[in-house]
């Protein structure tokens, strides 16, 4: 999946995470994370973001994430929605 544009999903509300995915020039996934629980869960949040993008076949992207205490399944859902939007794909693989 190729990231072609800026794709956003999620909100700044409690239990949610806002994800913005942008195209990148470098061959990696770069994550800018803001989270009130970053010290404790930052590593895990980053891992969920990278794993989800890898499953979708995204190898290069810039991700801006603002976490408000989201569960892993919420992070996964928001990354998937943002990635499909950024790749401008509407045929979903489940």
């Amino acid at each position: 999946m190729e990231i072609k544009a800026v794709g956003m999903a999620g909100t700044f509300e409690s239990s949610d995470i806002s994800i913005v995915i942008e195209p990148s020039d470098s061959d990696e996934i770069k994550i800018h994370l803001k989270s009130s629980v970053e010290k404790q869960f930052g590593k895990q949040i980053r891992k969920v973001i990278v794993d989800t993008l890898t499953e979708l076949g995204v190898g290069k992207a810039v991700v801006r994430a603002t976490d408000k205490g989201a569960l892993d399944c919420v992070i996964r859902a928001r990354v998937q929605a943002a990635a499909y939007r950024a790749a401008q794909i509407k045929e979903y693989k489940w």
Binding site: A9, G10, V74, R76, A77, R78, A81, Y84, R85, Y92
Partner: peptide, 8 residues
Amino acid sequence: DAARFLVY
């Protein structure tokens, strides 16, 4: 789309 991913 976002709600569908979330509930799924």
